[in-house]
Structure formats: structure tokens, C-alpha cells
Design a protein around this nucleic acid. Structure first.
Lengths: 233, 233
DNA sequence: CGAAGCGTTGAAAATAATCAAGTCATGTGG
DNA sequence: CCACATGACTTGATTATTTTCAACGCTTCG
């Protein structure tokens, strides 16, 4: 597997020199996950930092009474768990593979060293974290102020941006590359499986999306956008 | 005013040497705000970093149709707007003074220089940001999974931790030092002014809190805690 | 004193959750 | 290859929660 190539494609590392990449590569371990396998659990000591080579993970937070909330998804080329590891605390979320996935893995020390040698990387890491902070703030606002259908529409559009693949058929159809159940979508938008299912069924019936088993295709982006802004009909 | 003293009491700067504090002090500007005055508006270029000397500010995010969500409050000794300024982007929230307040203010450049000269400060800044990230994740989870009354109870307890002053009368009464309206509380917990008012009235009637005009006293922490965990009655 | 802001409360309506009972795929072991 | 178990998904009926709307009381301040 082309470890150096994967590292290169991660935005955080794109400005590293060849030797630096070689350095990182030498301390890399490869970790394979099966679909459904749990990488780490909320509350565990954060000793490792990960970069997704292929596949998809779900980062979720669990409440004391077992309910889940999805904080985000991570897909290929994304680094995660950096902050927890640098802070020497515990993972704040649980990470579970949605599909078979391959990860690159570094010990906290290896990466910490890199950060002190290359302050600009640490600086960019702050950028990345604060970008996620902004995103979470926006989702928080949506959750507090919008009805379920608008939240779902926004979530679909956002997932389309993050992981969508355009249909080769020319029309604007966008396939979400994430393998999500209705339950996942519900946990992402703060609703129930049932409500999410109803909304998707309605949109499927009216041709806005194609909702299948663990698959969603955005068909009419413009109408979905209207659903997202509340300008529907 | 004792600028150096204020700087010293901010956790981020506590490890600075005397000269360094003197350095910072020399580039400090003082900014006075009246109650209700807006410091900056969401979307403005983030050119300044602030430290609260006295008073309280509310950081909120506004939706396109005018609804607000409160992201957090900042009180004395807290630094804010650091990330936005370091990122050279725009402020992600609007900052408004709840009461008359005094702030210390630095230009982006002054502080950036300090960060590059003292990497450990930058590192601690990351800690602070990720702590806030965790907190927001938790509020997100609460918003998604808990009923209004539990969210309110948690918010009150958290505000008690952040800004509470113990009653001198010996009982465990905790006065929230923040001057909050029902509307503020509603925007903090993602509900409406009316629902928040009803819940507080009920708790006031049953002696859990004392809810006044822009003032709240936590009277029976234990029962409030039960409300927060859903173990009420 | 009067106006404006803050707070309360009731009644009606809307939204979403819950419960229950299915259908439809998918894959597995006999 | 088929039966069957399982997980994903759907849908209707009911219920609970919360919002909305409306009206009014109490302070505070100019």
C-alpha cells in the first residue's frame, strides 16, 4: 500500500518535504477494520492518532442511558483524534467503521515530535479543529432552531459536499458514498429513526432523492435546497 | 486599572515571565462596553482578540431568519476570539455585553507574534479550544436527546459551576452571577421563552430555585441534579 | 405617569416521539 | 437451493411534548 501517497493527500501534510514524509512513513502502522468494528470507545485513553486511507468511520457520542448522537463522519484522507491525543486525555467520542476500512496509525509521541519540529503543522491543526468547531456550531444552531425536515435536508446536502460522487449520467445526481442507515441519519440530525424514514420516503416519492437500503442519491438538488431553507412550495 | 494583573489571572498567560507580561501590557488597548452594546457582529473580519477584565458577554449565532442561538458566555479572565483572529477569517459569532464591561484588546499581529515566540502558549490555546469543543459536543448531544427540562437543569448547573457565587448564609445556595433573561436561557438551551419560563416557574414554586427578574439562585442543588439526570420524583 | 422590557399563564395547534405491526432485502446454514 | 433468521426500512394510530398565540401583570426607567 502506498503509505507515503496517502500521507501526501492529507491536507495537513501537503507541505511536508520528502524526507519528512519518509520519516512519518517509517513510524506508520497500518490498521485494518471490518465493517461494524469499533476502533476506540469514548473514554479510552487517547494514545493513537489516525488517518483514513480507505473507508469510512462514524464518530459518535453516547449518553448515559445509551442514546447515541453522531458527531461526524470521517472519510479517506482525513486525520482524526489529533486533539485528544495531543491533549493526553481520553477520546471524547466512539469511532466505528461503517464499511471495511484501512487506517494509518501513529503513536502520540511520534506525531507530537513532528508538531514541535514543524510549528506550521501545529498551526494548521488548529485551523482544522476550528473549522470543525464552526461546523459543529452550525449544526447546533440548526438543531435548536429548525424542524426535522430542514435539518435532514441540510445534512444530506452537507454529506453530498463532503463525500458525494457525481453521477456519470450527466444529470446533477449525486450519490452519497457513505453507507448510512436511517438510524444513522436520525442520530446525525437529532431525531428518531421513524421520523427520518417518513421524511425520506416523502422526498423519494416526490422525486427529490432516491432513498434505498443504506444508500441515498440526491436527484433534485434545487428542490432539496428549498427544503433545507424552508422555502418548500 | 491593573492591566498586568488581569493578564496574569488569565490561565493562558499564567506561565509568562514578567518581561513578557510587560510586553503584552504595552500593546494592550482598553475597551469599555455598556450593557447591551455589541462588540462585534458575526461575519466581520476578526482583527482583534479580547480578554474580559470585568463584566460578561454573550456569544451568539444568528440564523438567516433572525433566530438566535447562544454559543457561550464569557466572563472575567477569559480570552475569546483567539481562533478566529489567528485564522484571519471572520468572527463566527456575535458578541454582546450583558452588563457594563471592560475588555483588554490586542491586534491580531501582536498576539500572533507572542504565539510564535512562545509555542507553549499556542499549544495551550489548542487545549482551550478543544475543551470548548468537548463542551459544545456535549451540549449538542443534550439538545438532541434530552427534554427541555433536563437541558435547562443542566444549563443552570453548568452556569453555576462557571460563574456561581456561593451564598454567605451557609446553605448551599448558589447565585448565578450572569444577568440573564428567560429569552437568554431559552436561546442557550434551544427552546422558547415560554417553555423556559414555565419550567423555571415550576421549580421556583417547588423551592428548587429562586427565579427572579434577570436573576437566578440555585437553592436545592440535589433536586436540581435529579431534574438534570431525569431522576425527578 | 407612561412606555418599554421582562415575565407569566392558559388554551389551541403543531410537531415529533412512541408503539405496534408489518414488508422487503440479504445472507446463512441445512 | 430453499427456508428462515436478521437487519433495514415503512407506515398507521396514538400520545406526549413543545410551540404558538394571546392576554395580562409587574418593574424599571426616562
Amino acid at each position: 500500500m502506498d503509505v507515503a501517497g496517502v500521507i501526501r493527500r492529507c491536507s495537513l501534510f501537503e507541505r511536508l518535504s520528502d524526507e519528512e514524509v519518509a520519516d512519518l512513513t517509517s513510524s506508520t502502522r497500518i490498521r485494518e477494520l471490518d465493517a461494524g468494528e469499533v476502533l476506540f470507545v469514548q473514554g479510552e485513553p487517547a494514545d493513537w492518532v489516525y488517518l483514513v486511507a480507505t473507508g469510512q468511520l462514524r464518530l459518535s457520542k453516547i449518553t448515559s442511558d445509551g442514546e447515541q448522537v453522531i458527531v461526524s463522519f470521517v472519510v479517506a484522507e482525513q486525520l482524526f483524534a489529533v486533539v485528544a491525543a495531543m491533549q493526553r486525555t481520553t477520546y471524547p467520542v466512539t469511532a466505528e467503521a461503517l464499511v471495511n476500512s484501512t487506517l494509518l496509525e501513529w503513536g502520540r509521541g511520534d506525531l507530537g515530535e513532528l508538531f514541535t519540529r514543524h510549528p506550521h503543522i501545529a498551526f494548521e491543526a488548529v485551523q482544522v479543529v476550528s473549522g470543525r468547531m464552526r461546523q459543529l456550531q452550525e449544526r447546533f444552531r440548526d438543531l435548536a432552531t429548525l424542524p426535522v425536515s430542514q435539518r435532514l435536508a441540510r445534512a444530506l446536502l452537507q454529506l453530498g459536499e463532503q463525500t458525494g460522487r457525481r453521477d456519470e449520467s450527466g444529470d446533477g445526481r449525486v450519490h452519497l458514498e457513505l453507507s448510512l442507515t436511517r438510524q444513522d441519519l436520525a442520530e446525525l440530525t437529532g431525531t428518531t429513526l421513524y421520523t427520518a424514514s417518513r421524511v425520506l420516503s416523502k422526498w423519494d416519492a416526490s422525486g427529490i432523492i432516491e432513498a434505498g437500503r443504506r444508500s441515498i442519491v440526491l436527484v433534485d438538488l434545487e428542490r432539496l435546497d428549498r427544503e433545507a431553507t424552508g422555502d418548500a412550495e
